[in-house]
Amino acid sequence: MTQKPRRYLQGILWIVLYLALTLAPLFLLLVGPAPSGRGFWREFSVAIGFAGLAMMCLQFVLTARFRWLKAPYGSDIVYFFHRQVSLVAFVIVLAHPLILFIEDPARLGLLNVFAAPWRARFGVTSVLALIVLIASSLWRKPLKIHYDAWRIGHGLLATAAVALAMGHIVLVGHHVGTPAKRALWIGYGIFWVGLLAYVRVIKPWLEMRRPYVVESVTPERGNAWTLVLRPDGHSGLTFHPGQFAWLTLRSSPFADREHPFSFSSSAAQPQRLGFTIRELGDFTRKIGQVRPGERAYLDGPHGGFTTDRHEHAARFVFIAGGVGITPIMSILRTLADRGDRRPLLLVYASRDWEGVTFREEIEQLRASSRLDLCVVYVLERPPADWDGERGFVTADILRRHLSNFEPPSAFEVFICGPQPMMDAVERALLGLGVDVGDIHTERFDLV
């Protein structure tokens, strides 16, 4: 089986498994001996409460950075699903008490956590934690919550919401009376605690044992910095060009202050790992202050945004916007080091000519015999004498330059850049007849 059908199959398998694990509590409620019915709406509310909790537990799996789980879709899509399905879980969890309140308004008294029984206190606090969790994620930037604080809070609130909901189920005691049902919920609990221990304790501990040292910090065009790391006392890591790693600087891996960045260096030279970072957010603004000799930790490589997964592709098209050039630069450097002469087209959008990160090196690669590279710059604010493409990457621009790459099925496209640009380019490519399976994206800015 070639790589693509195998990935599709794997992708479908994970979706089926996700559905099975989410719906398992409902099936168990249906098949096992159950207490006698207490009215349709009450039982309906109970059922969605159980399913909502199963969904909340599975959220931890989605963000546990299992490479085998993310391989078929790409990391960004798994995070995006985590975000979307959390909203669905939130609605379902919220509907659980709302239905009970509508059915019998006297139950509203349970909201008074000072007078309510413990089972209600657990339930109410769990929902409150969930409300804060969702609100702080959806509106992190307007609420001006620092990314590091948000990440730590996100983990703590999620843990609290699930633990409190488990307590609520045990204290209510309904539908957990049989050994099979108890075993299922204990199993869910153990699985979840084990996962948490793996992500928060074992993984950081493994990272601590494999530190890196900052070798150099170099300014680049476009308000960016390139950070080069080398392994300190171990063999380092190997990666595929286009992948990313979680980087911890000036902090311990246990502090949960890591940030995802694409490798920008060649995968053929893994002893010097380069990351090119634009000054955009809380953390990235301080990159220029990092000094050679400082210690760093890496969790990676991650991500499926790589040409290495498409060995049989005849050509590649890269569409980069701003600092989205970093994973693509890693791919170009790697292909050049490997002497890969497959035809490549790079469409590179930037605000202005002076801010085109890696401009000189891209020009060198274009002129060299190591690559068969064609480059199209698209400038938002071009200089007066500019005779290249201007504005944004549109369907027209793509049609003009992709004409050498006919038919559309003959190439794989990699897009990385700001969210609106990626959406527009993806739509344009689909309109030009490019297969959705041949379009690969990397999106980071989800929170």
Binding site: S36, G37, F40, E43, G74, F80, Q84, V85
Partner: peptide, 30 residues
């Protein structure tokens, strides 16, 4: 496109849960 598919999957999971929950509630009371 992939984002739309994953949104559709998330909504699909929600609908499935609601349908199965209704089935459960119905069977419990009959």
């Amino acid at each position: 496109m992939r984002q739309r598919l994953s949104t559709a999957l998330a909504i699909g999971v929600g609908i499935l849960i609601l349908v199965l929950s209704a089935l459960f509630a119905f069977l419990q009371n009959h």
